[in-house]
Nucleic acid binder design. Structure first.
Lengths: 134, 134
DNA sequence: TTACGTGCAAAAAATTTGCAGTTTC
DNA sequence: GAAACTGCAAATTTTTTGCACGTAA
């Protein structure tokens, strides 16, 4: 456990939004100016492997980057608005049951799950003047 | 609807495995030697936007690429083995119910969902001699 | 120590953009 | 013929690799 890893893990753990590798690098440089982009990638890979953080796409609403968040106590669902990009997180007993089902039906020992939903939030549905054509 | 788009859509629709952009380009070149990588990306983006295909990560078991598949009639769950990479697809009534729940609870009009699961398949659990340490 | 981790340089992949010529309807 | 699409070139962005030096346990 090195200084750099502590810094990176700390950033992801305390983040209030979902960060991608570049944003993490940027923040890390603030705390440790010499930290390298490579170290960020390597550390994220490691933390992911060890189940300390999870990787997300957030439906790729803004480019094809990946986001990271601290692995929560209980899995949650990520709902991303395809128009404004807002992300809502949701826990669900039904989701827990579904996972148990999958484990049994697919005969798999589940390590990680990711449920991402894309759609339109209430605000966007209200303000969108039903664009015609495209 | 151009020749190139027909080719690319055809490839994804008839594929028996999940293909990534490079594999699609390769197959497309077989049918239309002049087709460009750029056209593949643009077309995939378009087909995705129009809900004709879905994009997957398959838990990034082999690199950070993205895979594509024809949009199925009914959503299914992708279960990927983190050791051997095998992918199992699963439909589930519970999943359907969960989506309805999410739509209501998050007040979102769902357009697309993606449930990916990573874990260890039966075969790998059987053959893995409980690696110690790492 | 001493195996592991880091920074630096550079390569490899993956994806996007600008633009002029071509095709579809 | 007009609008939309393509190929080509090149730029970006994202991620990975090799290697000599530095560091935590």
């Amino acid at each position: 456990m090195t200084r750099q890893r502590r810094v990176i893990l700390g950033i992801v753990e305390t983040a209030t939004t979902h960060l991608d590798a570049s944003q993490i690098l940027l923040q890390a440089k603030g705390l440790d100016p010499n930290i390298d982009r490579v170290t960020v990638y390597r550390t994220l890979g490691l933390l992911k492997q060890h189940g300390m953080i999870d990787e997300l796409d957030l439906m790729h609403v803004e480019g094809e980057k990946h986001f990271y968040e601290r692995r929560p106590q209980r899995d949650h669902i990520h709902v991303t608005c395809l128009r404004c990009g807002k992300v809502v997180e949701l826990e669900s007993a039904l989701f827990d049951r579904l996972k148990a089902n999958i484990q049994r039906e697919a005969d798999v020992q589940i390590v990680v799950t990711r449920l991402e939903v894309g759609g339109y939030c209430a605000d966007c549905r209200a303000s969108a003047p039903a664009r015609k054509g495209k």
